[in-house]
């Protein structure tokens, strides 16, 4: 087990190097000079060139990349080009908001999506199954910026139950979390339904049924255990995306999280900030995946880690 964990953690190194390399290369490919953007409308070409040199943008791609990697090993994520403060400070400020939102949303997904899927699977073909299938698709197809605004109009303006946007109290978290969770609830409900139905068709379940195991305990014990593995996998993917890409929800609800920071970094060509961001996000992705893999062992004791 320990050896497994160590191997998994070591495996993140090439991934981290890879994502940083992609960022480094991509900023050479996309037009837009961070120095020119910083200096604004009247900057002379000389001033821009001077700033480029002082920011270290002049160095060739391999040099910049290697320098950055050396800095990372010393725990230094560099200085944001635009904000001129340590990237680490910015990330430490921003990630807590993203964690709050993502975990609130993923909790909702578990609490609502999973039961809905099981309910649908327990009576396949019934009206309740159809209702769940159709409404979950509707949830999946509405752009979050639209559902977000509609929720605002209903719950904040008309009913006055919740604040429109921003941070502060737990009440500020409700609308963005629900909005972010909605498509994932739909995905998880669908996944749960179809995997449960699939497992129910498996030979061992049929055997158990033929042997006369009581229906209830059968569903819970055998089916759920086998059906949960793909569901957890997808849940992990959803969580990964929520951590990295809740741009729209954050924008609509003025939530100061990582998604907006990412857009800021790319629109301002602040690639030092971008490198730090994707690095941390890649680590999180690996961590979430590791959790998912470890959860397989909890769900199904037959799973072994080598």
């Amino acid at each position: 087990m320990t050896a497994y964990l160590i191997r998994r953690i070591l495996a993140t190194i090439p991934l981290a190097l890879g994502v940083v390399l992609v960022v480094t290369i991509s900023f050479d490919l996309i037009p837009g000079d961070p120095a020119a953007l910083m200096l604004g409308e009247f900057a002379t070409p000389e001033a821009v060139a001077e700033l480029r040199t002082s920011l270290g943008l002049d160095a060739s791609l391999p040099v910049r990349y290697v320098n950055y990697v050396i800095d990372i090993t010393q725990g230094d994520l560099g200085l944001s080009l635009r904000e001129r403060r340590p990237v680490t400070d910015i990330l430490v400020e921003t990630f807590p908001y993203t964690f709050q939102l993502a975990f609130a949303a993923i909790t909702l997904v578990l609490l609502v999506g999973l039961p809905l899927g099981l309910l649908a699977a327990s009576r396949p073909g019934s009206w309740i199954d159809n209702v769940i299938r159709v409404t979950s698709l509707a949830g999946l197809s509405m752009p979050v910026f639209w559902t977000g605004i509609v929720f605002m109009v209903i719950f904040s303006v008309n009913l006055r139950w919740l604040p429109v946007s921003g941070t502060g109290t737990w009440r500020h978290l409700i609308l963005p979390a629900v909005t972010l969770a909605l498509p994932s609830i739909a995905v998880i409900a669908r996944m749960t339904r179809s995997t449960v139905l699939e497992v129910l068709q498996e030979d061992f379940v049929r055997t158990a049924r033929a042997k006369g195991v009581a229906n209830r305990s059968l569903l819970y014990k055998h089916t759920l255990r086998n059906a949960l593995i793909p569901v957890v996998t997808v849940l992990g993917l959803q969580l990964g995306q929520m951590l990295g890409g809740a741009v729209l929800t954050e924008t609509v609800f003025a939530w100061p999280g990582v998604g907006r920071l990412t857009v800021f970094a790319i629109f301002n060509r602040d690639f030092v900030l971008m490198q730090g961001l994707v690095l941390v996000l890649a680590m999180l992705y690996v961590f979430v995946n590791l959790l998912v893999d470890l959860s397989y062992g909890l769900i199904d004791p037959r799973v072994r880690y080598q």
Binding site: I149, S156, V157, S165, G166
Partner: peptide, 18 residues
């Protein structure tokens, strides 16, 4: 000074008194 990027949300927060 609050940052509210979405135009609709800005207008709505005026109406709710936020």
């Amino acid at each position: 000074f609050r940052t509210v990027p979405e135009e609709g949300a800005r207008m709505l927060s005026l109406r709710t008194g936020e």
